[in-house]
Design a binder for these strands. Sequence first.
DNA 1: AATTTTTACAACCGCATCCAA
DNA 2: ATTGGATGCGGTTGTAAAAAT
Length: 258
Amino acid sequence: MGRSPCCEKAHTNKGAWTKEEDQRLIAHIKANGEGCWRSLPKAAGLLRCGKSCRLRWINYLRPDLKRGNFTEEEDELIIKLHEFLGNKWSLIAGRLPGRTDNEIKNYWNTHVKRKLLARGVDPHTHRPLNAASAALQGMDTPSSPATASQSSEVDDGVTLLPPPAGHLGGMIDLNLSISPPCQPSSPPPMREAEARIVGDGAFRTGYASEREEGICLCLNRLGLQGGVGCSCGGASPSPSLSSQVFNFRFVDASLQRS
DNA sequence: AATTTTTACAACCGCATCCAA
DNA sequence: ATTGGATGCGGTTGTAAAAAT
């Protein structure tokens, strides 16, 4: 029994892609667009598995990829997003225009982990490695999504509020408020919204009364300007992370269905 | 200069999820 | 409601390049 293989492995190439293979793949997608990866290799004249083609396109050949070194700003954003989302690389990548989940995952494992360790921070929990010393200082850092239990604040005014009791395991449920270090003279009202991580990995967002309409909250404000996750066309100015004020929760919709 | 070790990252693999039949 | 194919995701591996010995 078992599943049938995704492709005829005996007749597919593996390993590094050649220039010619790249050109074939690019030409085919330019002519026909993305989609139907299973049939693409045959149509494009490639002796590759469809999954391999998809990966090559998404991680390396896509024209909108940024490539090059990560900036300090991207570094910090990755750390913050990882703190909130854990190893949800595709979601993190969605906040970083031109970066892929694979690239961020690799970067995390080779650079960011080390950077956090050097700061004395556990890259898994984002807590100080020496918890005892933190307790002595009467301070704490935000916990991982699975262990969040206390309100805490990190720089940039990002605050994690405690999740409702019982939100553990696969449920990502963060009451996250982002506020400026100093409130403006007439502070805007606190907005509350819900962001659902749905099957396709996109956020479905909306104010409490408008959830089904999927009102865009321009969540890319948690990412960099011009993020692909922004569906509002970027019409509104996208000020820095620290100037936004709203609450939202991440709810894994799949876990709410049952 | 040769060899070994480390680093960086592209690519693979297996499982999860979605969705149409 | 069930099933199976297609796709997406995250963990892991393989390997070329760089650094160290």
